[in-house]
């Protein structure tokens, strides 16, 4: 069955002629088993097709249209105004550019840190030790606790910054803040500043990073569990140390999952509630301005940037990583 079916899967568009032959009665192919199975399969995914066309493709087109036009909510009227909304987003909106740059910077640091951290944690959790199950329970807790409203709610409170800055000044006065003290020490001793700035940013954001890496740990863990044990045994027999085995076996076997995780992390980061760009777009849409045109132009820009980053990361990783079939 499969050989015959594979014939028309060379390109996605080569399916169109087959679709006509298989779905339209009266054709020669209509009564073959393959066509029957194809029809059944299409019935199975029919909900998705309908949903995608009605609630994804069409809104996407509408929102593209909106982003290119002046939209008045009360009358529902759309007036074409070229690229004005996009121009406004970049040149007219006081906060948008700055926010985008901020978020992208934060995203880059977060993605790298999340990937490294979740990989390390997955490797550790994959080992056998006492209390492993308890550790797993705790590490996957963030999957639940950092979803939806929960992560941003405390930081979005207007008074949060006040309290945090109060706490920081208290810490600085009493000298409790270790990372700040270390930073001072390093900058005084003249070690390269820029690199350490990034590292200290990571350290300060480690809570957010751990909270955002639940799913990634699960993905890496599943990859680690799929590595057959005989590989390690063979390496051990040949006199390979654990360190070498890690870099020669564990890392290459798991690295294809880096792409999945990387994509997931970027999307997750870009769609979070505590993201200031999302907040800004919401404000433009529902706030005083009520400008849906600009809001959808901005969300398109934002989505475009996310896509570009996913593409770049995927390209880099797939260059670096070997795929084992």
């Amino acid at each position: 069955m499969s050989k015959k079916d594979k014939k028309y899967r060379e390109h996605w568009y080569s399916g169109i002629t087959e679709a006509v032959q298989m779905y339209v009665p009266g054709n020669k192919q209509y009564h073959t088993i393959a066509a029957r199975r194809a029809r059944i399969g299409t019935l199975f995914i029919l909900p998705f097709i309908i949903g995608f066309l009605a609630f994804m493709a069409r809104p996407l087109i509408i929102s593209m249209q909106m982003s290119l036009s002046q939209y008045t909510i009360l009358t529902g009227e759309m007036k074409w105004n070229n690229y004005h909304n996009f121009k406004y987003a970049f040149t007219g909106d006081p906060d948008f550019n700055r926010m985008i740059v901020d978020e992208v910077g934060r995203m880059l640091i977060n993605v790298i840190a999340t990937l490294v951290l979740s990989f390390v944690i997955a490797v550790i959790l994959n080992q056998k030790f006492k209390g492993r199950i308890l550790c797993r329970i705790i590490f996957f807790l963030p999957v639940i606790l950092s979803s939806g409203v929960l992560p941003g709610i405390e930081t979005s409170s207007s008074s949060y910054n006040l309290i945090v800055s109060m706490g920081q000044s208290m810490e600085e006065a009493s000298g409790v803040n270790i990372s700040a003290a270390l930073e001072d020490l390093l900058s005084v001793s003249g070690v390269a500043g820029e690199v350490f700035d990034v590292i200290f940013q990571m350290i300060d954001a480690i809570y957010d990073i751990v909270m955002a890496s639940g799913i990634q740990i699960i993905v890496f863990l599943s990859g680690l569990q799929a590595i057959s044990h005989s590989l390690y045994e063979a390496a051990d027999v040949e006199g390979c140390s654990a360190w070498e085995a890690f870099w020669k076996i564990t890392f290459p076997m798991v690295s294809p999952l880096l792409i999945v995780n990387c994509t997931y992390t970027i999307i997750d980061f870009f769609m979070k509630n505590d993201n200031q760009v999302i907040e800004h777009i919401n404000e433009v849409m529902y706030g005083v301005q009520m400008d849906i045109g600009v809001a959808s132009a901005e969300s398109w820009i934002y989505f475009g940037i996310a896509l570009v980053f996913i593409g770049v990361f995927t390209l880099i990783i797939s260059r670096l990583v070997k795929f084992y079939e």
């Binding site: 069955m1 499969s2 079916d5 594979k6 028309y8 899967r9 390109h11 996605w12 568009y13 399916g15 169109i16 087959e18 679709a19 298989m22 779905y23 393959a34 199975r37 194809a38 029809r39 059944i40 399969g41 299409t42 199975f44 995914i45 998705f48 097709i49 995608f52």
Partner: peptide, 9 residues
């Protein structure tokens, strides 16, 4: 199931 346009969907 194998059906036309599967890759696309």
């Amino acid at each position: 199931y194998e059906f036309p346009l599967k890759k696309f969907w």
